[in-house]
Design a protein around this nucleic acid. Structure first.
Lengths: 213, 213
DNA sequence: TATTGTGAATTAATTCACAGCC
DNA sequence: GGCTGTGAATTAATTCACAATA
């Protein structure tokens, strides 16, 4: 898909945000959009928008702009989300169970096909009252087996900090392809397992820095 | 606090991650740490760690390293989190109610002192069964008044996409200082109101890009 | 001796500015 | 005429490499 060059990680993140913008425009039945409009909505420079696309090809029409539907399709193809990815959530505490019912998250390209906890019985009791059995909660011992059986490619870690690396190791051992770590501590993976550590509080910390300075 | 220069946003995010690392080391009773160790744990270059600190002062001892406790204190001071910040959560759906009980989040420097929804009665019924009245849920009409009364400086937006900008506008009108937007669409604020849009799925999208390529 | 702190060198990302094209 | 696509210019971030020093 990519032409030849190394693509900046920032470009990839922006592509994902352009996609949201395009989904909105599509909802408003807009057919065509210019780089200037996208830039305006996403708070970036218009040349940047064009350059981000240029890494992957020519998607626009000079003098006209971009076809919304087509551009959306192209970006999904670039990102690899023109299909459904199977996800497992490990750790069904507050955050984990929020994910299980987070519909916006499910709707597009991701499907949570398994949920694990080290104490499924307690957890099921706690969460079943507020959702109609969204997905069965399994004991974490079954992780490797189920990852294989259900073609799970991505694991989301939502366990307490002291368990995070252990769970990461289990996922790695289960031949997971990628890990999204939402626990409050960083985990390590070998180069073969792609990783994103998302620290919720980091965003707050950086916000607060700019509030204080 | 900062010497003179403009500080890269990336530096601020890393400071927040060094802080996590230091908290862990402190928990293990480590007294001293080197830039190389921090770099190793946080997956960055050691010179980068030193340079990040250098923007703000000299915190280490040549030949020795950094005093864990002291460095932790210094970073908290730099980030402005050497005190408690009052937060409001707007939109008590799944994600919002997860925040209300997300203890790791509360523990350090942030305190959720108000929660708003446009239908508090329904919401209270839904969530009260799984938590012991963590914080009263108020009607969003009372936002401005309560923000003022409780010295709330930060608002977290966890409403559905079509409501996000409206809520942002309410917060802006209530003279909030900063907004953390966890809804799936970007919102806009005037320059006087600092903003972070956190798109959960963007992290997944970028992870998937690197899995596909 | 070991490790910080930092100027210089390097690499990367962004923006400009305009040629190319519909 | 208006907007894309892109080489060149600029700006920013990272890393190197070593002098300073506890």
């Amino acid at each position: 898909m990519a032409k030849y060059q190394k693509i900046p990680e920032a470009t990839i993140r922006r592509l994902s945000s352009y996609l949201k913008c395009l989904a909105e425009l599509e909802g408003k039945d807009e057919k065509v959009v210019s780089s200037t409009q996208i830039a305006e909505i996403c708070n970036v420079n218009a040349a940047q928008v064009r350059k981000d696309f240029a890494y992957f090809g020519e998607f626009g029409i000079r003098g006209m702009g971009y076809n919304v539907k087509q551009l959306k399709f192209n970006i999904k193809e670039i990102l690899g989300i023109n299909r459904i990815w199977h996800i497992a959530v490990v750790g069904i505490g507050n955050l984990g169970s929020a994910l299980l019912v987070y519909k916006d998250f499910l709707k597009q390209n991701y499907q949570i096909v398994a949920a694990f906890d080290k104490d499924p019985v307690t957890v099921i009791g706690r969460i079943s009252e507020r959702m109609g059995k969204p997905v069965e909660i399994l004991h974490v011992d079954r992780l490797k087996e189920v990852v294989k059986a259900r073609n799970i490619e991505i694991g989301i870690i939502t366990v307490p900090p002291q368990e995070a690396q252990k769970v990461a190791n289990l996922l790695i051992d289960a031949n997971i392809k990628g890990i999204l770590n939402l626990s409050p501590v960083p985990v390590k993976t070998p180069p073969s397992v792609k990783l994103r550590n998302i620290f919720f509080t980091s965003a707050l910390d950086s916000l607060v820095y700019y509030l204080s300075n």
